[in-house]
Amino acid sequence: MESARASTERTVPLTAARSRATFLKRLGRSKYLLILFLPCLVYYVLFKYLPMFGLVISFKDYNLFRGVWASNWVGLKYYRMFFESPDFLKLFRNTFLLGVYNVVFGFPMPVVLALCLNEVRQALFKRFVQTVSYVPHFISNVVVVGMVVMLLSPTTGVVAHFFKLLGWQPVNFLVQPEWFRPIYVIADIWQHAGWGSIIYLAALTAIDPQLYEAAEIDGASRWKQLWNVTIPGIMPAMVIMLLLNIGHIIDIGFEKVFLLMNPATYETADIFSTFVYRMGLTLGNYSYGTAVDLFTGVVSLIFICTANYVSRKVSDTSLW
């Protein structure tokens, strides 16, 4: 609204001068705030916006020694190269599927955990479970993947050990492409489910107890209460979290995939960001890597906007 008014004002020449004056005054009045904001601004300009302009090298034949401006324009060469390469579909599929599995299996877990915790009345037990289940969230990806690799080793890992006890053949999980996604998703749930439940627990405590009492008076069973009171109560939180998760489908974490993958599992493990790292940084194809970067960015923007739009239509909850 404000901006609309401002633009109407600007169309009137007489008021333009006045608005400039008030603007300068406002600037002067907020100079200390602006000073406080300055480091932040510098950071965002340097490390967030400058790179966006750097995306221009994806349309050039970037040569490190010549610099951005002296490099030749090549138009869409690298995009064409990417879309036509066999890597494209594979990367898209891998990134997308990994992200989707992560949401499909990773999203419900914190909700379930929170609902269960909510049923627990022994405060001490509840606190204990919470404390323990939050811990993995603070453990680095390097440690988590290191643990996964060690525990899944078919010769010495504890999983192989249990397999043997059960009379099964040990499986070499880490070099089998079909196991990559399950391993990744399970590790992710292990890491973040506990922490993710915090938000729902908070939402649960915010539900008005009178709603439950009313339901009880109406003779609703615990199960019915769950569906008619509890779930609707945490629905907004769920929608927001789901949106955020969907927004990250394409933008799935680089670190863990990078650490967990190996050439034997590229077939299912290689995603956009690991590809960019390999192609762009380790092989020095900066322009090509950047083209993939930009493509990833655009797709993930589309994802989040769509998710947000759909959600606003369907449930009245949205990120913006």
Partner: peptide, 12 residues
Amino acid sequence: IPPDFLTIDTKQ
């Protein structure tokens, strides 16, 4: 041969 013969490193 070890099931992880593909990835066995020197130390292992």
